[in-house]
């Protein structure tokens, strides 16, 4: 379980996150929703150690994440898929996937995980030795998620996987995430601006507005409350 308590992040005089608290349950999908600038990405970056939180704590399985470096947090079973399909365009697809498992000790396990990703996403297998920039947006997103799987995480942080993707592709990525969560018992923190598709797979929803948690409810409740949707999520 991921427990976030009183987390505050400031850039200079600007507070991007103001004392955010919520919990993400084991083997469930928790969606973090909100408009641009609500602090969603900052939240993920604070959890993965890319930005320094001013105060507060975030414990995963009881271990404090805040204050640790990103390269150490990976070892706790936390993997992040960065915004904008964070794959390295100049490396090949295979190399990107290998990178995901580099910190692991078992080379053979990494190898079989990479093959598993290829089974999930056949388009990647066909072009494994091509540079990543030859892939389409949706394929890159698959690769980014695939790479995170190779790291064999227990907690997956996803930053706007639907960004810039066609609705059909978004839907297939979302259902893949849901399947992953169920099959592997992954805990997923899904940051999305596309609230509709995120709510379609999420178990729990947290809505951020200007750095503050305004709603933290079951996803189904949020999805069925039309006032709330209109007010905060714009659909």
């Amino acid at each position: 379980m991921l427990q976030i308590e009183d987390l505050t992040v400031s850039y200079g005089a600007v507070k991007a996150l103001k004392s955010v608290s919520f919990e993400a349950n084991e083997a469930k999908i928790t969606a973090v929703l909100g408009a641009n600038g609500a602090g969603k990405t900052t939240l993920l970056r604070a959890l993965s150690g890319l930005v320094h939180a001013t105060t507060g704590s975030a414990k995963y399985h009881g271990t404090e994440l805040i204050g640790k470096k990103p390269e150490d947090i990976v070892y706790l079973g936390v993997a992040q898929v960065p915004e904008g399909r964070g794959v390295i365009g100049e490396l090949t697809i295979e190399e990107n996937l290998r990178l995901g498992g580099l910190f692991r000790r078992d080379a053979s396990g990494t190898k079989s995980d990479i093959n598993e990703v290829y089974e999930f996403f056949p388009p990647l297998a066909q072009r494994r030795s091509k540079p990543t920039f030859t892939l389409s947006g949706g394929e890159r997103q698959m690769l980014a998620i695939g790479r995170a799987i190779v790291a064999r995480p227990t907690l997956l942080l996803l930053d706007e996987p639907s960004l810039g993707l066609a609705p059909l592709i978004t839907a297939s990525i979302m259902s893949f995430i849901k399947g992953l969560c169920h099959q592997k018992g992954l805990t997923v923190l899904l940051v999305e601006q596309n609230a509709r598709s995120a709510l379609s797979i999420a178990d729990f929803a947290v809505v951020l507005s200007v750095g503050e948690v305004v709603i933290a409810k079951d996803a189904a409740q949020v999805a069925s409350d039309s006032d709330l949707r209109h007010h905060y999520l714009g659909f």
Binding site: Y11, A16, T41, V51
Partner: peptide, 19 residues
């Protein structure tokens, strides 16, 4: 290595994020 500053555009000019 990575300065948190790179993220500032998002906070100061929220509307720029997607564009």
């Amino acid at each position: 290595m990575n300065s948190p500053v790179s993220n500032q555009d998002e906070i100061i000019v929220p509307s720029m994020k997607r564009s």
